[in-house]
């Protein structure tokens, strides 16, 4: 038996010899076997090292065999395809690992009573208690931040794309870019210094929302700006040519055309700030009891709860942190799905 598959009997410039599935399997089995032997005979050890070594050996062997049998172009294709697949795998691996770990650890504690009870009067080693106050806090804080950041950011993006032409537009654009890299604790400390120290207000969910707004703004502006830019000018011209005013054109023609992309950008911004801990630490402060009013007094929030519980030297507290982290991920997931459904309902018909 040879490594060469079918098609070798047909001769045509358009048909080239290709490695059969059988020979690919053979190469894979061969590499694993060689790796096993090497790991047994030499000082090399460890599961990760084994995987990496086997993968590297497989790609090398595959490329070499392919170069010999299928020709250079095909060999290059196989090599690059392997690298691309390996990189994609490496990229999702940590994500899947984090998700799997959180689900495994979190479902142990997660229950109906965990979602509907607060931590009021619950000691760290007690098994009961829940995150109702933190869910309410997070929803209120992120909701308020979204209400402030989205209209604000959209208006800035509309100004940048539709109206600005000179130096001021570039100036704004530059500072939006700079703000993208703002460390989240700085946003929190800014609100802390301004709202709580200088203006003498108390810790509150609203103070946290303001810090989150500062963080959301650049993402909203940037994504909305990019989406508005790709709306073809022919649509604007088509509208102008009907004698429609510029602002009506922007509101009724340009914005709806870019809506799906803008919603995605807003969702990314929301997902980003929902998990923020640092700015809330100095503005919302955290609270074991339920505080429904986001405008007065310390509130709880999911990331803050995870942070404080995970820092306690106690197994039940740490388990609660895992469960809260799982709920946080689910909240972001649900928001994402809802936004995508909404975007599909209102977006471009075809």
């Amino acid at each position: 038996m040879t490594l060469v598959g079918v098609a070798s009997t047909v001769s045509s410039a358009l048909i080239r010899t290709r490695l059969s599935a059988w020979s690919l399997t053979a190469i894979a089995v061969g590499t694993v076997a060689v790796t096993v032997v090497l790991f047994a005979a030499t000082p090399m050890q460890g599961r990760v090292a084994f995987l990496l070594f086997a993968a590297a050996l497989y790609v090398t062997a595959l490329t070499t065999v392919s170069a010999l049998v299928e020709g250079r172009r095909r060999a290059k294709d196989r090599l690059v395809t392997s690298i691309v697949v390996a990189c994609s795998g490496a990229a999702v691996l940590p994500l899947i690992a984090v998700l799997g770990f959180t689900i495994a650890k979190g479902t142990a504690v997660l229950s109906g009573s965990f979602l509907t009870h607060t931590m009021r009067g619950v000691a760290e080693q007690d098994a009961n208690g829940g995150i109702y106050q933190a869910i309410i806090g997070t929803l209120e804080q992120v909701g308020l931040a979204t209400l402030m950041a989205v209209p604000f950011g959209l208006l800035v993006a509309i100004y940048l794309v539709e109206y600005s032409s000179g130096r001021f537009g570039r100036f704004v654009s530059f500072f939006v870019d700079v703000m993208t890299g703002l460390p989240s604790i700085v946003a929190g400390l800014f609100i802390f210094a301004l709202w709580i120290l200088a203006l003498g207000q108390s810790f509150s969910g609203f103070a946290g929302s303001m810090a989150l707004t500062v963080l959301m703004l650049p993402t909203v502006v940037r994504s909305a700006e990019e989406m508005l830019k790709i709306v073809p000018d022919s649509l604007r011209e088509g509208s102008y040519a009907l004698g429609i005013q510029k602002w009506v054109t922007v509101v009724r023609i340009v914005l709806p055309s870019a809506l799906a992309g803008i919603v995605t950008g807003v969702m990314l911004a929301i997902a980003r700030v929902t998990g923020e801990t640092a700015p809330l630490l100095v503005t919302v402060f955290g609270n074991p009891a339920l505080n429904f009013n986001p405008f007065s007094g310390a509130q709880a929030s999911l990331p803050l709860f995870v942070f404080s519980e995970a820092g306690l030297p106690n197994e039940t507290a740490i388990n609660r942190a895992w469960a809260a982290a799982l709920v946080l991920i689910l909240v972001v997931l649900v928001l994402n799905v809802v936004a995508r459904v909404l975007a599909r309902l209102v977006s471009v018909r075809s």
């Binding site: 102008y240 040519a241 009907l242 004698g243 055309s257």
Partner: peptide
């Protein structure tokens, strides 16, 4: 210019119906 364009309509090289509208 808005008034001018109400009086002078235009049809473009590529058909550009608004994609979000019936």
């Amino acid at each position: 210019p808005v008034e001018v364009r109400r009086a002078v309509g235009m049809v473009f090289q590529r058909p550009n119906p608004f994609p979000t509208m019936s």
